[in-house]
């Protein structure tokens, strides 16, 4: 609000306080007994292909939401790529080596991080974990490598980067297309294949999430360089 005067701020504050009071009153009226879907989820768990209910909800019962959510991630990555000259990170200049100890540590850490990521992906079937956690771990170790001045493999941030961003969203879609082709309902896995399909989708999603995280952090860097070179470009 351009030139929002003091008066408007005061009115705004009043409105927000009123809203808060109104909402508090409403929340106090919320039923104490759980009216949620715990029971329904429990009953459907045997057909879900996984053992952990949150994973089951995310990737099976409400898998459609998760698919679209990967679409949101993709859009955010595309938004960052808009400020890159190409659909990849090759234009991002690597940082100068920062500190040999840190660099060494990051290199040593890398395989462990990949391992942890893989474990998180796998354990999601039984316990808290899954693609998002795995992807975030993987993404952060990549960012860590980049921060310490290590050159990332050229194909990974070049030719393969855009496909990596897309593969999570695409895997869901491919599964949906195949299932639709054999006449099943939208994204309805056959119960006996559900576990495998979820693992497939999660693996792809992990890669996409990691790539997106890297893009979201690393991609901002080009602009800073750009700005240093020409402040009003």
């Amino acid at each position: 609000m351009k030139g929002a005067g003091k008066a408007i701020r005061v009115y705004g504050l009043c409105a927000v306080v009123l809203l808060a009071i109104w909402l508090v009153r409403a929340v106090l009226a919320m039923p104490v007994e759980p009216g949620g879907l715990t029971g329904v989820v429990d009953a459907a768990m045997p057909q879900s292909g996984v053992k952990h209910p949150v994973t089951a909800v995310l990737l099976n019962f409400r898998g459609y939401d998760t698919w679209l959510e990967l679409g949101v991630l993709l859009l955010a990555a595309m938004g960052v790529l808009l400020f890159q000259p190409r659909n990849d990170l090759t234009a991002v200049r690597p940082l100068p080596p920062f500190d040999p100890v840190l660099t060494r540590a990051a290199v040593i850490l890398f395989p462990f991080a990949v391992l942890v990521s893989g474990y998180l992906l796998w354990v999601g079937k039984y316990a808290p974990g899954g693609a998002f956690q795995a992807g975030v771990v993987l993404g952060s170790v990549v960012i860590l490598l980049w921060l310490t001045g290590i050159r990332l493999p050229a194909p990974l941030i070049g030719r393969w980067f855009a496909p990596l961003l897309a593969v999570g969203f695409a895997s869901f879609m491919a599964v949906a297309a195949v299932l639709g082709f054999i006449g099943r309902e939208f994204l309805a896995y056959p119960p006996e294949q559900a576990g495998n399909l979820i693992l497939l989708i999660e693996s792809c999603a992990t890669l996409s999430i990691a790539a997106t995280m890297a893009a979201l952090i690393v991609g901002l860097r080009t602009q800073a360089q750009h700005a240093e070179e020409s402040p009003h470009g």
């Binding site: 879907l37 019962f61 409400r62 898998g63 939401d65 939208f186 994204l187 309805a188 896995y189």
Partner: peptide, 12 residues
């Protein structure tokens, strides 16, 4: 169409 084949309220 029931996304996931579950039907409400479990599915979408």
């Amino acid at each position: 169409e029931r996304a996931g084949g579950w039907g409400a309220p479990l599915g979408i």
